[in-house]
Nucleic acid binder design. Structure first.
Length: 869
RNA sequence: GCGGGCGUGGUGGAAUUGGUAGACACAAGGGACUUAAAAUCCCUCGGCGCUAGCCUUGCGGGUUCGAUUCCCGCCGCCCGCACCA
């Protein structure tokens, strides 16, 4: 028996079948045990799983299986984020229906996930592209529309003038359409929006309560919401024949720098800009130029700062008789504040860039601590830090905050156009969530446009509004809009000929409530509130850091919107959140600089340098940098091949070992080999220990020192692995399991007597339980060899004897001037004075002191001794 | 451009969150077993000295009896930026 190698190819499908037949991971909603909901972000059905999925789902499965062993009723479901652009692109390229492509992909990926042996309740599987799912989304849309959570307004899109279609930001490359190559334009379109900005304050405040989230994710969300206190400030326009307007309202968070103002900046989309451009061809051309790039904020902010002098001037609000020019500037967003600013170049980098370009004055008004007011000047870098105000008459000497309140009071007391010149306002960067997409493969927005009755929701009895099957993608644009009959309907109110909304929803909507649907996936309402409220919030959610802002923020909003419409009874969907790192791999390049996939490369690692050659041609291959696995660099490893070669357990174990889960992990062939070897070591250890325990043992001697030492190691490992898994420190848990395995193997090889044999048997049994969450197939096989009844999947988490966790002695390092000079072993909890006496008596210490008297002796109980000389 | 993060031996990383830096693993080298290979087992393994010493957690400062951990400044890499999912 012990000579046989463990064969995952045989064992893994076997146990998967057993779990399936015994419905081991099917979860009942009426189970009385404490519920625990673990969820990994559901995948987009691209066709094949990648190593990122393997990592993500391995982690989630450890958590699920661990809590299951702890006696909880665990919900661990899986589904498909099945709407989206790639299916439409595939439809165009392969002349297939997006649905056909998507469902084929789902089948393929499901088979792959199943081969991983995940403890998933597949009876709860959902696909967002199924009418069974999206009809509920439509119903909630109607509820939310009625509740005033949805609005329609104009916003900008990327328009491809050749393909006559709206482009996603990722389809805009260097300002051009990815397919047509045409220069993209910004276009205004009336679109549907969720009013997430109404919840800005709530979403911000509630972050403090999300203690199970990484601090960095909360920080990112806080910054994204971007709450700021500022001043709305009216600038009087100097009368001009160009406009009838008498004032411009700006929003500023730095009213303290008003004496440093040197221009007014308007957004290219500001109404005043539009008015002026109507009679100013040069300005109109400038505005058009501003629109000749995509709508991505990144492009805008990276673009060179440009401005256009409108010729208008405003009166300086605090310097009598002075006026400031009014510019239109490309970096000013219409969506934020009032779409107009006052520029203070000395203390804002973008303003400074513009001022330098157009020769506007730069007047410093905040003096850095210690700087000389007479000589302080701003060069190419704006001064944005703290200091005291100067060059500002009645604000001189104040701190920035003091100056802000004083100037706010000052402007509050004055008036322009019969209104207060300034008023304090809280502003948020967070914009409403635009969900309209001019695409076929998404959830239809259930609305009908009637000439007579206006925009009215589809009656719930008529749901779902189903996507038509007979579509073709030959024509550019929205295939739903092109469909000959689909959009022509009768108004549900008046019966007149009307038109269906042909926009579909952003796929972020689909993923904003799937976690709730999983709690009752077959219900004929979106949720069963009682059931959802018992399961939610998700105890542990796991996914990529790339979703730290949008997906999580939208889900938090949508949960609130579902609460407002009676579908759930809570605000926050995710109690625990974890963001895992990426999977990386070395890159390889051939002679012509072409990327070579790892499967075509042989690494020669004997001696000093690692070199590589092509598997068939033998041509030398250059080993490149380690990068995120991507198709474009061909540095991908196919999970299917790994599972076929080494088995799922090896892949899972490797994904969990070594790298901390939040950091990137580098996939290496050597690492996988190591994981595979460990699998065999465990198998051998278990089989050997069964042989040993067959020998006559007699009575157990509980005071056997070796046995007690081993039991201590075993019980510490059990306690430690539990702590590690609960803190998602999978790599630490793995290291601990290695240590335990080493200790057990040593005991095995020592020809153990009865007491040690007992400890060994106990240790091996617990080892199998410890590896179960990570290598569940191997664990079942070992459990069987141990002669245990039932499945290890159904066995509980091993008990820990607390007496074995405590030590009565501690070894303290002894430092002299911070350098380690020796150590001393003393009873735990020994008083500092006693420790000091003993330590000072030691030879090593006397020698290190070299006759000098200690200035101070620091004794930290049970930790360290430091003698300062 | 703005916001967030990360950086420890040849490599992945550990360090009870201010208390013995390098646990555990991989790679490499040496040895055992074997006719041989694979598998397995044992030893060495941060650097310089190679003795009892010194240096070392991206770089440069600071706080502290003591810093991988806290603070300031740099460098490098990664993620997000609202229509990729």
């Amino acid at each position: 028996m012990s000579g046989e190698r463990y064969n995952p190819r045989e064992s893994e499908p076997k146990w998967q079948k057993v779990w399936d037949e015994q419905k081991s991971f099917v979860t009942a909603n009426d189970d009385p045990r404490e519920p625990y909901y673990v969820l990994e972000m559901f995948p987009y059905p691209s066709g094949r799983i990648h190593m990122g999925h393997v990592r993500n789902y391995s982690m989630g499965d450890v958590v699920a299986r661990y809590h299951r062993a702890r006696g909880k009723n665990v919900l661990h479901p899986m589904g498909w984020d099945a709407f989206g652009l790639p299916a439409e692109n595939a439809a165009i390229e392969r002349k297939t229906h997006p649905g056909t492509w998507t469902y084929q992909n789902i089948e393929a990926m499901k088979a792959q996930l199943k081969s991983m042996g995940l403890s998933i309740d597949w009876t709860r599987e959902i696909a967002t592209c199924s009418p069974d799912y999206y009809k509920h989304q439509q119903a909630m849309f109607i509820d939310m529309l009625a509740a005033g959570l949805i609005t329609r307004k104009s916003s900008k899109v990327n328009w491809d003038p050749v393909d006559m279609t709206v482009l996603a930001n990722e389809q805009v490359i260097d300002g051009k359409g990815w397919r047509s190559g045409a220069v993209v334009e910004q276009r205004e379109l009336t679109q549907w929006f969720f009013k997430i900005s109404d919840y800005a304050e709530d979403l911000l405040e509630a972050l403090d309560g999300l203690t199970g989230w990484p601090e960095k994710v909360r920080t990112m969300q806080r910054n994204w919401i971007g709450k700021s206190e500022g001043l709305r400030l009216l600038f009087e326009l100097v009368a001009s024949d160009k406009t009838a307007a008498t004032s411009v309202e700006v929003f500023t968070t730095r009213p303290d720098t008003i004496f440093g103002a040197s221009f007014i900046g308007l957004s290219p989309d500001h109404p005043l800009t539009t008015e002026l451009a109507a009679n100013n061809p040069a300005l109109a051309a400038f505005v058009a130029e501003c629109h000749r790039h995509g709508t991505a904020t990144e492009t805008l902010e990276k673009a060179e700062k440009q401005g256009f002098d409108t010729g208008l001037r405003v009166k300086h609000p605090v310097i009598e008789g002075e006026t400031l020019p009014v510019y239109v500037a490309n970096f000013i967003l219409m969506d934020y504040g009032t779409g107009a600013i006052f520029g203070c170049p000395a203390h804002d980098q973008r303003d400074l860039d513009l001022a330098r370009k157009y020769g506007l004055s730069v007047i410093p008004v905040v003096l850095p601590p210690g700087a000389d007011p007479a000589s302080f000047a701003v060069g190419d870098e704006a001064y944005v830090d703290a200091g005291n105000i100067f060059n500002s008459t009645f604000l001189d000497g104040l701190s920035i905050d003091e100056a802000k309140s004083k100037i706010a009071q000052y402007f509050g007391a004055r008036s322009v156009d019969g209104k207060p010149q300034g008023r304090i306002e809280t502003n948020y960067r967070l914009r409403d969530w635009g969900i309209s997409r001019q695409r076929y493969w998404g959830c239809p927005i259930p609305v009908i446009h009637c000439e007579v009755c206006g925009t009215i929701p589809v009656p719930k009895k008529d749901l779902p509004v189903v996507l038509p099957e007979d579509v073709n993608f030959d024509k550019p644009g929205n295939a739903l809009d092109h469909h000959p009959t689909w959009k022509h309907v009768h108004c549900p109110h008046c019966g007149a000929a009307a038109r269906r909304e042909t926009d579909t929803m952003d796929t972020f909507v689909d993923s904003s409530w799937y976690f709730a649907r999983f709690t009752a996936p077959q219900a004929d309402t979106p949720t069963i509130p009682d059931v959802a409220n018992r399961w939610l919030p998700v105890d542990q959610y796991i996914g990529g850091i790339e979703h730290a802002i949008l997906h999580l923020l939208y889900s938090r909003f949508f949960t609130r919107a579902m609460k407002a419409t009676g579908h759930v009874g809570l605000d926050e969907p995710f109690k625990g959140m974890f963001t895992q790192g990426m999977v990386t791999h070395e890159t390889y390049k051939g002679q012509q600089g072409e990327w070579v996939p790892p499967t075509d490369v042989i690494i020669d690692s004997g001696g000093e340098a690692r070199t590589a050659r092509h598997i068939q041609t033998g041509v030398p291959i250059a080993i490149g940098s380690v990068e995120k696995m991507s198709k474009s660099k061909k540095n991908v490893v196919d999970p299917d091949q790994i599972v076929a070669t080494y088995g799922a357990d090896t892949a899972r174990w490797f994904m969990l070992s070594d790298s901390p889960p939040e950091r990137d992990v580098q996939w290496t062939e050597a690492g996988v080999e190591g994981a595979s070897r460990f699998q065999q070591r465990v198998w051998r250890l278990v089989n050997d220990s069964v042989e040993i325990s067959k020998q006559p043992t007699g009575t157990v001697a509980p005071d056997d020192a070796d046995a007690k030492a081993l039991r201590k190691i075993v019980h510490r490992a059990v306690a430690g692995v539990a702590t590690d898994i609960e803190g998602l420190g999978f790599n630490r848990a793995v290291a601990r399991i290695y240590e335990l395995t080493n200790a057990l193997a040593k005991a095995r090889d020592s020809q153990p007597g009865p007491a040690l044999a007992f400890a060994l048997a106990e240790g091996v049994e617990r080892l199998v339980q410890l590896i179960n969450p990570m290598m569940p197939h191997l664990a079942e096989s070992c459990w069987e060899v141990l002669g245990k009844q039932g499945l290890v999947a159904d066995a509980g988490w091993p008990e820990v004897d607390p007496a074995l966790l405590v030590d009565d002695e501690v070894t303290l390092p002894i430092q002299v001037n911070g350098k380690r000079r020796g150590e001393i072993t003393v009873p735990k909890g020994m008083a500092a004075a006693e420790v000091e006496t003993q330590v000072l008596a030691l030879d090593v210490v006397q020698k290190a002191l070299d006759g000098k008297t200690p200035k101070k002796v620091v004794v930290v109980q049970d930790r360290i001794v430091n003698i300062v000389v």
